[in-house]
Amino acid sequence: MSDQTGAEFNFDFWRNCEPRRSTYPACRAVITARYFNKEHAMLEAIQKGYYLLAKNPSNADNLLSFAQQVGIDTNEFLQLFGSDLLNQEFQQELQFVQQLPVHGFPSLVLYYQNQYYAIAINYTNADDVITRIRDVLTQS
């Protein structure tokens, strides 16, 4: 458990896995799951796998297991995951993110009246984040 946020975290990840800094495979898996209407379920499976089960989300075998857990046929998942179509969509999303007012991840961005606003994240005080969002809404 995190001392600061209270979030559960299985620290075995750092003992049992070879950490990789790329989140690209997990991002590609979420985009792939979107085609099966399982985007949120995949995101949740990846988060649970990483934080609670010490499963590396950069590992293709883990992503395939997560896909199966959320009800996606593994053959269909693999075919789309490695496709040119998926690669093009992933590249488009990367280009979109580069246009946003963010400098690191995770980030919170508010889209309001055709503009994007970076919202500072306070992991221990949701009211602080809500206040920042309200400030943007009232100043615009």
Rank of each mutant, 00 (worst) to 15 (best):
Q68L: 10
E76I: 09
A7S: 12
G82H: 13
N122A: 13
S107M: 05
L78R: 00
Y117T: 05
N10V: 00
V109N: 10
I130M: 07
L43K: 09
N122W: 11
G104F: 09
V70G: 02
A126E: 10
L63D: 00
N125L: 09
M1F: 13
T32C: 02
L100K: 09
F36R: 06
A26C: 05
I46K: 01
A60S: 14
S22L: 02
A60T: 13
D84Q: 12
E39S: 03
N56C: 04
S2L: 10
Q92G: 13
L80Y: 10
N37V: 06
I119R: 07
E18N: 14
P57I: 01
N87H: 13
R34H: 12
E76S: 14
N16G: 10
T138C: 11
L53N: 14
Q92M: 13
N56G: 04
P101V: 07
S140W: 08
N87V: 11
I46F: 01
N62L: 04
Q113N: 14
N16K: 15
A45L: 03
D61S: 08
P106G: 06
S83R: 00
D3N: 10
D84F: 12
A118K: 05
V97Y: 14
N59E: 15
Q91V: 08
Q69Y: 11
N125K: 12
L110R: 03
L86E: 08
E18I: 10
S140M: 10
R21W: 13
A60H: 12
M1H: 08
L78K: 03
L52T: 05
V109C: 15
L53W: 09
N75S: 06
I133V: 15
Y117P: 06
Q95E: 12
Q115A: 06
P25N: 02
N10I: 01
V129C: 03
L80M: 07
I130F: 06
A41I: 03
R132E: 09
L85W: 11
I133C: 07
G49P: 01
L85V: 09
G71F: 01
N125H: 09
P57S: 04
Q88E: 11
F36T: 11
N37R: 07
L137K: 12
D128C: 03
T23C: 08
S22R: 02
G82N: 14
L86G: 00
A45D: 00
C17Q: 15
M1G: 08
N62A: 04
Q99G: 05
G49M: 02
Q4A: 08
M42E: 04
Q69R: 11
L64A: 07
Y116P: 11
E18Y: 12
Y117S: 09
Y116F: 12
G104M: 10
R28T: 03
L53K: 13
F77M: 02
Q69E: 15
D73A: 09
S140F: 08
R21A: 14
S140A: 13
L64W: 04
F81C: 04
E39H: 04
Q4C: 03
V109E: 14
N87T: 15
H103G: 15
E18T: 11
Y24V: 12
L52N: 08
N10R: 04
I121H: 04
D135P: 02
I31T: 07
K38R: 15
V136F: 02
N16Y: 15
C17P: 04
A67V: 00
L85G: 00
L80N: 02
V109P: 10
